[in-house]
């Protein structure tokens, strides 16, 4: 079994005796993985990460991070962290920020200097290193924040909403940095409420969290496997013979395709739809397109946050005890 970098069980957190932010969360992350932690606002994602970083004390937790109990301070020497809405002292320059937090992480002076220069280069902020960060844009702050999370050359990096407020170019650059981390063999836990993010980064593993619990987990492939299908769009109504076949599903077409119909066949084998195509051609039907599809992470996400009792999407926020959740 591969080495577990994070292996925690049954983590609970109740804020001020009322707000149940986490209700029995177990997470296992293996070395070298990029894991996405997904969930609506208030799901408890930040709380989970803060517990791992000792910023918040758990009400209950067991398990290990890099082989040491949760809350073991010296372990943090090997962990990098980018908090959400992070705020650096406004009187520092970009270079000074990296130097300061590296020193706090116990990095010696000469290593600090070399690494700060390297990281600023990686996040594309070298030109700005002597500018006071109070003059930075949100995206630049996020880049420096990302560099800051790597100053101690960590084995494990926890990123809380790293692309929050960043423009598309910045997002692409951040993704490049993440891919680089993967190549360097670092383990990354990435926290986001934006689904497209995780899909693009190519997370190895996804956890979907809602109301303080993990609702769904697995690789993107695993999670979307059951939804793999072929969609055929034809001109005109669905032929009667197709309606009669149970393995052919009929779905409405998009708004911009009037007078057309969609036939859906689940499965991953292209050969399985060839007879259908032959028959449609034999009927002289016009095939507009044939497409292999699977659910997006977004659809998966929506399904996992639907309340099992009411069938409605739960309001964002922590579990309140009246509806939703198990």
């Amino acid at each position: 079994m591969p080495e577990a970098v994070i292996d925690i069980h049954d983590v609970h957190k109740t804020y001020r005796r009322r707000i149940k932010a986490l209700r029995g969360v177990s997470v296992r992350v293996e070395r070298g993985q990029i894991v996405g932690l997904l969930g609506p606002n208030g799901a408890g994602k930040s709380t989970l990460v803060k517990i791992l970083m000792t910023v918040v004390r758990p009400s209950r937790a067991s398990g290990t991070v890099l082989g040491h109990a949760v809350g073991h301070k010296p372990t943090l020497r090997r962990v990098g962290y980018l908090p959400e809405h992070h705020r650096f002292p406004p009187y520092l320059t970009g270079g000074q920020v990296l130097d300061f937090y590296a020193a706090l992480a116990g990095v010696d002076r000469s290593t600090r200097r070399v690494r700060a220069a390297e990281l600023l280069e990686i996040v594309g902020m070298t030109e700005w290193k002597d500018t006071c960060i109070s003059e930075y844009s949100k995206g630049m702050m996020q880049r420096v924040g990302l560099a800051q999370s790597l100053v101690n050359d960590p084995d494990l990096v926890l990123l809380d909403e790293p692309t929050d407020g960043v423009d598309p170019i910045g997002r692409r650059d951040i993704r490049d940095v993440l891919n680089r981390m993967r190549e360097d063999g670092k383990t990354v836990l990435l926290n986001s409420h934006l689904l497209s993010e995780l899909e693009l980064v190519g997370c190895d593993h996804v956890l979907i969290m809602h109301q303080g619990q993990i609702r769904v987990e697995g690789s993107i492939d695993e999670l979307t496997h059951d939804s793999r299908r072929y969609e055929l769009v034809i001109v005109g109504d669905v032929p009667d013979w197709a309606n009669a076949q149970p393995e052919i599903d009929v779905r409405p077409t998009a708004m911009n395709e009037p007078g057309m119909s969609m036939l859906v066949v689940s499965g991953t084998e292209a050969s399985s739809i060839q007879p259908l195509i032959d028959r449609l051609r034999a009927d002289a039907r016009t095939i507009v397109r044939v497409q292999a599809r699977r659910d997006s992470l977004e659809e998966l996400f929506m399904r996992s946050v639907i309340n099992r009792e009411t069938g409605q999407v739960d309001a964002p926020g922590a579990y309140t005890g009246n509806g939703g959740g198990a």
């Binding site: 301070k73 943090l76 908090p83 809405h85 992070h86 705020r87």
Partner: peptide, 18 residues
């Protein structure tokens, strides 16, 4: 108050210092 402001203190507490 600045030291313990949200977003600032997180960065510091996450370092290996008691």
């Amino acid at each position: 108050p600045d030291f313990i402001a949200g977003g600032a203190i997180d960065l510091v507490l996450a370092k290996p210092i008691g």
